[in-house]
Amino acid sequence: MAYSDKVIDHYNNPRNVGSFKKEEEGVGTGIVGAPECGDVMKLQIKVEQDTIVDARFKTFGCGSAIASSSLATEWLKGKTVHEAGGIKNTDIVQELNLPPVKIHCSVLAEDAIKAALNDYQKKAAHESETEKTATSAGA
């Protein structure tokens, strides 16, 4: 099976590889895995005023999984949290021209985005909760 040029490009020059500190404010972390092949993917977003200003990933898996997450981080940047939730695995499949046997890689990337957004929202809710408690305690 041959990889498409776009997959090879992302594989050879992955965008946004790396990580943020999990505890950092505005950072959402998603860690997901594909039970069939054992690939593991970590995807992080950094949010400022509801907009994703930066994204990072680390993927240990096949070329398609790396390309899917690399592409995802590119797409995430500049999107609002709400818009980011609309990224579908089928968009990734189309952009990278993934063959049927590699569709699960795009699913993994979508799951990672969802997990990162979830984590961010949970953290944000928790932070505003603590803020409220702090304010009411101060009052």
Binding site: I31, V32, G33, P35, V40, K42, K58, F60
Partner: peptide
């Protein structure tokens, strides 16, 4: 949907890093 325990994935990520 079988989701692996978060600690296993974390552990594996750490080792891979």
């Amino acid at each position: 949907q079988t989701s692996p325990p978060a600690d296993l994935l974390n552990e594996i990520l750490e080792i891979q890093e």
